[in-house]
Structure formats: C-alpha cells, structure tokens
Design a protein around this nucleic acid. Structure first.
Lengths: 202, 202
DNA sequence: CATAACTCATACAGGTGTGTTCAGGTTAGA
DNA sequence: TCTAACCTGAACACACCTGTATGAGTTATG
C-alpha cells in the first residue's frame, strides 16, 4: 500500500525486528516493562525505538501481533478436521501452550490496546474454534443450548485458568492439557447425553 | 492485639471508612486509580489518607478485605446444604454478581498484594465451594477424576469469563447465571454419566 | 473547657515514565 | 565513493505518583 515513499534499509528492518522480539520477551515477563527496558533488551538506543514506533501502544501492538502470528502458524500445522472431539483435543494440546506463553503479553495488550483491537487480533484462532464447535453441533456431540461465542470463551477461559494454576504450583504442565480437555469436553456435552470417557482420546 | 495504646476517635473511624469505601469504588472503576484520586473521592485530604494507611498496598488490602467480607455476608444468607446441584446453582446465582462487581478491584489487588495474601482473602468463599463439590462427589453426581482445587478454579474462571462477556456486550446480565450454571454443571459431571438437564434446577 | 487527636492545604523530595530535540558518528546501497 | 538513511548518547520538558514534613485550624471527648 504505502511502501512507495522510501524502502526501509536493511539495518532499520533488523532494528525493528529486534525491538519487537525484545518487547515480546520483556512484556512476557512483566506487562509493565518500560520502553527503556525493551530498547536495552533489544540492544538499541531508546531513541532508535522512537524512530520506528510512535508510542508505547504501537510497540505492544506489534509484539502482540507477532505472538498471534506465531500462534496461527503453529495451529496451521495441526489437523483440525474429522471428529470434533479429537480436533478439540488437538487444538487444546497446542493452544494451551500458546496461551500460557503469551499470558503476560496479553495482560499488557489489554491495558494498552482498545478492546476491539484485542478481539480483532484473536479473530484467527477464534475462527478455528468456532469451526470445530459448529461441526460438533451438527454431529450432535456438542450442545446447542448455549451461544457459540460463549463456548469459545469458556474454552479460552479454562486454558487461562490452567496457566494460573501452573504458576501457583497446583498443577504440572504435563497434566494441563488433560485437565483442560476433560473439563471442556464435559462442558460442551449436550444436556441429557453422557460425558465422553477420557479413554477415547488416547 | 495492639488496641491498648489509644482508642481511635469517632471522626477518625469515619474518615477511614470513607477512604476504604472510596477505594473500593475507584479501584472498581480503574485498578490504577491513584491515592490522590481515592482521597478526593472520599472527601478527605491526601495527607489524611497517609495518616491512616502507610502505603498504597494497605489501602488496596483494606478495600479488598471489605469486598470479601461483604461477599461472605451475602453468601451466609444462602442455603448451600442439600442437593449439591441445587447448592451449586444457588452459589452461582449470588457469587457471580459478587465476582462481577469486584472484578477491577481484584485486578488492583493482584498487582499490589502478594499472591499468598490474595488466596488467603479468598479462603472463605473457596471453602464453601469445596464443601459443595466434596458433597457432590460423595453422592456421585460430580466427577472425581480431577482435583477439587482445579474444579474450584474452573468455576471461578467461568464466572470471570461471564463478566468479561457482559462488558463486551455479548451477554446480558439476566442470562449470565443460567449460562454459568449450565456450563459448570456439565463440566462437573463424571465421565460416562449424562449431564443434568437445565429443567431440573428450576 | 481544655487538651489531645484529628484534618487540611501547601510544599518539598525523589522516583519513573513518555516523548522530543540535537549534534555527531556509522552504515547501507546506488 | 558519496549521500541519505540510520543509530547513538545526552539532555530536556512534562506529567504523574509516592511519601514526608510543617504549621495552623478544627473537633471529639474526658
């Protein structure tokens, strides 16, 4: 679109990349990390950072976008077709890890970015889950008495919950996926139908 | 313990109360509200605030404690004995509202107070839920293949999720309790057993 | 009513963060 | 090679928060 004016020089692109990467790391550790801190971690001067990003919000947005892109790439490698129960289990296996890693980064984004932007960034992963749920509903293995948006939110909410539990030392990361899957699968089961046994997914 | 030195004067107690109340309101709107803002809202000079609270953390702690106390009082009026399914539904009916109101206040507490203190403050409500779940397990209506601590967390996680959905305009507060109950009841159902129909609780 | 407790406005000290400016050194790229 | 883009540290302006000190006024309470 607007790339006509002047192509960025190679070293500029390298700086920008280093900044975004450092931002993802710093904000991932501490959502309140300052721009000075991020610039230092990126190995560039603070002024250089301001040469490429007009405000703190822009840096956070770029870091968050990067994390989402990485997540989408990881999910591209997962087969989410076929049995909705299996697809959901596979999504959780990969997705909870991503949620766990981007935890603090999300916290930063929620403080710095408007709510609409956050949802926009999540539209990619959200669409996948919606697809799985819709298919599960059509096959009558997932409940239809609650809105899809709600079910999507429940899934992500439980994944976040697992991340908190791990940090509190009450859950080991090895069992996280199992717990999430067992919980969500039951939560998604239509009223009157039996909850799927855990043995089926293994 | 140390109340021997000098009994506080009536106006001092009034000021303290006004500050705690204002803190709950301000932090409820914005977790980053400054002490100046809180003092102003309380109708008190900033210096007066410092005369009663040594640090920001103390103010947040007091506000959070107050909110928890209110919550415990509200829960005291609820009959949580008898059928675990009914008890859980009743807990959600009241508890969801409390979570929704104290949402931002909790965010402030999580930033200002050590994690141990937060859990300590929540021990009251947590014990109630644990009681209900333990009873449900004994009666074989709740699953035993996941730790109680995890189930407690799932419940609160879903309640928080509902609060977020309402703020995003995707859920009306009237239906929140129903959605939460339907979701959590299914999530708590033992594998192999049918999930309870929504008609049963009404 | 008299005194100790309380409140208040003002002001100061110290800290942190954001965003901008400037002048001089470095590097990519034609 | 030569120029424009880039990077840099230092410094500045501004805003905001925390916490403390002071001195004078107000009020509860014995």
């Amino acid at each position: 679109m607007g790339s006509k004016s002047t192509a960025k020089r190679a070293d500029a692109l390298r700086s920008i990349d280093a900044i975004v990467q450092a931002a993802a790391e710093c904000l991932g550790r501490n959502p309140e990390a300052s721009l000075s801190e991020i610039a230092r971690a990126a190995g560039v001067g603070r002024v250089t950072l301001y040469a490429h990003f007009a405000s703190r919000a822009e840096v956070v947005d770029a870091a968050m976008s990067r994390a989402i892109d990485r997540g989408n790439e990881a999910l591209d490698a997962v087969d989410l077709t076929g049995d909705p129960l299996v697809a959901l289990a596979r999504y959780i296996e990969v997705g909870w890890h991503l949620v766990d890693q981007a935890r603090a980064l999300l916290a930063a984004a929620q403080r710095e970015l408007p709510a609409g932007r956050i949802r926009e960034l999540h539209s990619g992963p959200a669409a996948r889950v919606e697809g799985i749920i819709a298919r599960g509903r059509a096959e009558q293995v997932f409940r239809t008495d609650l809105p899809i948006a709600w079910l999507v939110n429940v899934l992500h909410s439980v994944m976040h919950s697992a991340a908190d539990e791990i940090r509190a030392g009450r859950l080991t990361s090895g069992r996280a996926a199992d717990h999430i899957t067992a919980t969500v699968l039951a939560a998604f089961t239509p009223p009157g139908k039996p909850v799927p046994e855990p043995g089926a997914g293994e």
